[in-house]
């Protein structure tokens, strides 16, 4: 399953083919084609309204495209329901951190650890799933090991972001979609997040939507730039920074570094 493809990037895990999304006449995505390789950390950038978040929504099933298809690990998932897509190994972190505020950090992680999703089977599972050790390790990874029995609603904003990241790791998705994971984080927290993401590379495949170029430079292998619902350019940080088309797209905002 996931976690064993350590090392260099493998074959294609995700293919988007000619995706088009319309919201009552407004074209949010117009023929997007994108390939992401196994174990890679792909950054998705672009000016506001470029369709980045919508692209993530299409992959995780929140938005159904008008045309085109999404293929994950060789299987088409375009028309599946959100929970079915999640079971195929797609995890999603939302822009507004969403965790279960009334549950403790540990309970949050137990929910995320979705080994058997059935209602009736889960009726006969009690207490900790026997994965306590794994969960404690994850909590340690994001600095929440002292807060295992604290209600998630009592955490700070940065801690909440980290908890949601830990939840995605507990879910152990092959493909993790992160929508602005560092939003609202302090510089120190952002640096720690970059460090964590670099450690996740190879074990999980990540697609990260971000605005913070400093953060992107820390973590990215390949950047995909979206503009007006299309893929505008793809390449390393250096290639993207010197790309004339990208400069034009960001016209008036001083190129990607000023975005």
């Amino acid at each position: 399953m996931p976690a064993n493809a350590v090392g260099a990037t493998g074959g294609t895990i995700l293919e988007l083919r000619d995706i088009t999304v319309e919201f009552s006449g407004f074209v949010a995505i117009a023929g997007l084609t994108l390939d992401v390789h196994e174990g890679e950390l792909r950054c998705l950038i672009g000016p506001n309204g470029a369709g980045k978040t919508t692209a993530l929504d299409v992959i995780c099933g929140k938005v159904k495209p008008a045309s085109g298809k999404v293929v994950l690990g060789g299987r088409e998932i375009t028309r599946l329901e959100e929970h079915q897509i999640a079971r195929h190994g797609v995890g999603r972190k939302f822009q507004v951190p969403s965790v279960f505020r009334d549950l403790t950090v540990r309970q949050n992680m137990e929910v995320a650890l979705c080994r058997a999703p059935g209602v009736l089977g889960n009726l006969f599972r009690f207490g900790n799933s026997g994965a306590s050790e794994q969960l404690e390790k994850l909590a340690e990874l994001v600095g929440l090991e002292e807060a295992m029995d604290v209600a998630a609603g009592a955490l700070s904003h940065g801690q909440t972001q980290w908890l949601e990241i830990a939840l995605l790791l507990a879910q152990d998705a092959r493909l993790i979609l992160m929508d602005e994971p560092t939003a609202g984080m302090t510089a120190h927290e952002t640096a720690k997040t970059a460090e964590l993401f670099n450690r996740l590379k190879g074990r999980h495949t990540l697609i990260v939507v971000e605005h913070d170029m400093g953060f992107i430079k820390e973590i990215s292998d390949i950047i995909s730039v979206m503009h007006q619902g299309r893929l505008l350019a793809e390449g390393t940080v250096r290639e993207i920074e010197t790309n004339a088309e990208v400069r034009a797209a960001y016209l008036g905002s001083g190129g990607i570094s000023g975005a």
């Binding site: 995780c60 959100e82 929970h83 079915q84 999640a86 079971r87 995890g91 999603r92 939302f94 969403s98 965790v99 279960f100 929910v111 995320a112 979705c114 999703p117 209602v119 939840l167 879910q171």
Partner: peptide, 9 residues
């Protein structure tokens, strides 16, 4: 929604 994206129906 958060529950849904963890794979539960």
């Amino acid at each position: 929604n958060r529950v849904r994206y963890f794979g539960y129906d």
